[in-house]
Design a protein around this nucleic acid. Sequence first.
DNA 1: CTGAAAGCGCTTACAG
DNA 2: CTGAAAGCGCTTACAG
Lengths: 330, 330
Amino acid sequence: MVTIKDVAQRAGVSPSTVSRALSGKIPVDKETKEKVMEAVRALNYQPNVLAKGLKEGRTNTIGLIIPNIRNPVFPAVARGVEDVARRNGFTVILCNTDEDLRVELDYVDKLQKRWVDGLIFATAQKDSHHILELKEKDFPVVLLVRHMEDKVDAVISNNFKGAYEAVSYLIKTGHKKIAIVNGSLGLTLYRERFEGYKKALQDAGLPVIDEFIIDGVSDNGNGYYSMLGLLEQGSVPDAVFATSDPKAIGIIRAIKDYGLRVPEDVSVIGFDNLEISALLDPPLTTVAQPLYEMGANAANKLIRLINSKRAKKPTVDVMEVELIIRKSTR
Amino acid sequence: MVTIKDVAQRAGVSPSTVSRALSGKIPVDKETKEKVMEAVRALNYQPNVLAKGLKEGRTNTIGLIIPNIRNPVFPAVARGVEDVARRNGFTVILCNTDEDLRVELDYVDKLQKRWVDGLIFATAQKDSHHILELKEKDFPVVLLVRHMEDKVDAVISNNFKGAYEAVSYLIKTGHKKIAIVNGSLGLTLYRERFEGYKKALQDAGLPVIDEFIIDGVSDNGNGYYSMLGLLEQGSVPDAVFATSDPKAIGIIRAIKDYGLRVPEDVSVIGFDNLEISALLDPPLTTVAQPLYEMGANAANKLIRLINSKRAKKPTVDVMEVELIIRKSTR
DNA sequence: CTGAAAGCGCTTACAG
DNA sequence: CTGAAAGCGCTTACAG
């Protein structure tokens, strides 16, 4: 391991000078600087990040906390985060929590010890006290996809509008009995999508029917059973608004297994626009979220927080959303 | 920030004693130990990992270097790596390279010295000198998915056998003109799958036909054009062995766009068994790789390397593979 | 069993 | 512009 001392010796200067020549922030004589650079090259010197971090109190590392990278929403999001991080000289630690609070707290603990400079959470719940605590300590935090009102900086998409447009489209194309298969109402994003659904019905003078409202459905496979349950109890809607593409996939399978056709008997509309959604049978009509850009924005926001001394008021960036019409709706 | 000094002061002992009480490796009087623990709890002391790392020369962090987390093979792999890492007290840094060597070298540079205890590469090429160099320096390295003969520890799947079984199945079910759409032959895994393809044909007394051999096809969308090209030049196979599921997806679209049916006119078989592959139209027949387990094994292997003092001879773990028959083959 | 001291590799006031 | 010194928060020989 070659250290700053080795470089200093070879260049015939003191370690302090090497440090200054390298940082560039403090004036150094041109000639000495060249000698230093020459030595750095000759020895292939790499400054030790730990020592630097220990001294400066920062590590140029951020943590990305998500439920599960296998949920197909997150690869694009993670990629957005990483690209921006890398371009700014940051490195990202990936943390999957499976929505388990203990795992999440564990990670927060561990990462803070590691002196991570900031954290992006895509796991925020209504009552994520630990996130609020970090915020209060002025530790840089940004929420992604899910947010907590205006208390913490966040990047989300326009959930209300996306849902409103999806359901309005269904109404416009002649559907009257529109069910919603929703996620947990503990999450703001699903509450907002629910509001959009209700508003669209109301604006069209359609009733909001209790039996067509299903929530608490997760993304890993139980959309199938919720839909099957609905059909088997004899409530057949003419359209379903699924609040995520993974849910829509399960719902379509359930409708087919029940012996009905999509979209002839039941139209299905999703929310996300995953890369696979165009490849399904039938190709999925859905509301596109700019997942990559959301990740990229969150990383930018976090890095700005890290670099700025004074705390500003948190802001929530709402990204626009677009209805993509394919073949799962008639 | 509460440091070891604060704890020492409160417990009325020296910092050295606190360190020893905490590490547990060196005997400490029971009573003093309790005083220390009491102080640790009272102050909610968190040892600073940077300082520890600087002193001990290790950080309990590993780097995972992959082409792109958006390629649907990698989320499962990454999850396997992370789960094992976390269970062993390690943290993982995610690095996407897009197969760009400069990005990769940049990452290796940044991560390697003193900062990360080991590296998992899912990006190895035939001539990845930088990986060999790390290995020679005795820096812990494990290859994943792709390997470099027996020079470096690796976890791969049984590519030859998977390909052999896939193609043999096609032959057994009456196909005679079987094309292969392959990845870059610069990668061992694709060479091995190619060998399996050829061997299966030979064992059945079928000729290996040049015009049915396409390689250098990447996973992001150009399977579509390769297949379309093949069809348009008038060479219509009765089956296609795609050496990855993403390629199979593009191939199926090309066949349909060309006006033929899958599997009635052309059977298609993939390799991977992604979660989406069962949901496609038609559901994809494919060779399943244990992606999660491969990631988990690689992490285990790496952590063992990190913890063991002496270098052992590298070993290549070959994981078993399974043919999953669905509806894209007749 | 315990404390004082040295040192991991840096950066940055403090002098000059 | 430059060097010597102190210090970031730990761990670990060295004495006792």
